[in-house]
């Protein structure tokens, strides 16, 4: 007679659950590791070759840079590599190609992964200073960035690992509390790690919420007439057009038009092809 005991049921369920999770873990890369490494190496060589040609005054440098950018883009789109240094390199190449919009776009993408990288910060600040439009950041955002510096300055991977570590530590101390009930310091440790884990989890949740709610983007077109509505029949929103590199937050979209908000809160509509989101 077949007897189903509780341990065997639990074990079966765990195996099924992990198998299901494992199925979700499949990525969407169409490049093998070797192909990716080769592309990366080619891009680096082309970029360096372009630098040499530029130093010699050869206009063919632009072609080499474009090719290098294309290879890096393949690593992102086909290889599904999302890496701070990769986007940083792309930003540098687009700056060399005088495409301020795409340069800032890729720097912003790199900033999600290496937010405190000094080279990235310096380059982004420099390229932003070259933008024709200056839209001041509201004071409130600067205050938030100062108070919650750990949310804004630590890479997401650090915060995620920190959450997992503090989460495990909290449970370990909770387990110890089961055996040593009289030890008050164990409880304090449990509470402290639980608080840290909660703070880091909240940071991750806020990140995800911001990713869904506040979708940043960059104007790519050289001169973009922003309008008051989703049609060319609407009046322009500003006395001057927006220029490449102007950063915005997406509010909504209708067909070919995007409703955006500049960093000072003013809103307008631009055509979809004239801008790109940091996280499409």
């Amino acid at each position: 007679m077949f007897s189903t005991s509780l341990p065997s049921v639990v074990l079966s369920a765990a195996i099924f659950f992990l198998a299901a999770l494992g199925a979700c873990a499949q990525g969407k890369s169409t490049l093998t590791a070797m192909q990716a490494a080769a592309l990366c190496q080619e891009a680096e060589q082309l970029f360096n070759a372009g630098n040499d040609k530029y130093a010699a005054g050869d206009v063919a440098a632009l072609d080499d840079w474009r090719k290098a950018a294309a290879r890096y883009e393949r690593l992102v789109n086909e290889g599904d590599y999302h890496n701070g240094a990769l986007f940083y390199n792309l930003g540098n190449i687009y700056f060399r190609l005088d495409d301020i919009g795409r340069a800032i776009l890729n720097y912003r993408r790199a900033q999600q992964f290496i937010p405190r990288d000094p080279n990235l910060l310096r380059n982004l600040a420099f390229v932003r200073s070259r933008c024709r439009d200056h839209v001041p950041e509201p004071e409130r955002i600067r205050v938030l960035k100062t108070v919650f510096f750990w949310h804004y300055d630590l890479p997401p991977s650090w915060r995620e690992n920190g959450f997992l570590a503090t989460f495990a530590a909290a449970w370990v101390f909770a387990l110890l509390c089961l055996w040593r009930r009289q030890r008050h310091w164990l409880r304090w440790c449990t509470a402290a790690f639980a608080f840290l884990a909660l703070a880091l989890a909240s940071s991750l949740v806020v990140d995800e919420w911001n990713r869904q709610k506040h979708r940043p983007g960059v104007i790519l077109g050289e001169s973009v007439t922003a309008r008051k509505g989703d049609s060319d029949s609407y009046e322009p929103s500003f006395t001057e057009p927006l220029h490449a590199g102007t950063e915005f937050t997406l509010i909504g979209s209708r067909g070919e038009w995007l409703e955006i908000a500049l960093s000072d809160g003013r809103t307008c509509w631009v055509r979809r092809h004239q801008a790109e989101l940091v996280n499409p």
């Binding site: 992990l18 979700c24 590791a33 970029f47 590599y81 701070g84 240094a85 992964f113 890479p155 995800e208």
Partner: peptide
């Protein structure tokens, strides 16, 4: 004036995505 150097090597091929959105892919 000017921008800093590019980064090279294998560090470019490390997927640094993190956050709650990536958890379904890292069971």
């Amino acid at each position: 004036e000017g921008i800093a150097h590019n980064y090279g090597g294998d560090i470019l091929l490390v997927d640094q995505r993190a956050g709650l959105a990536t958890w379904p892919k890292t069971p």
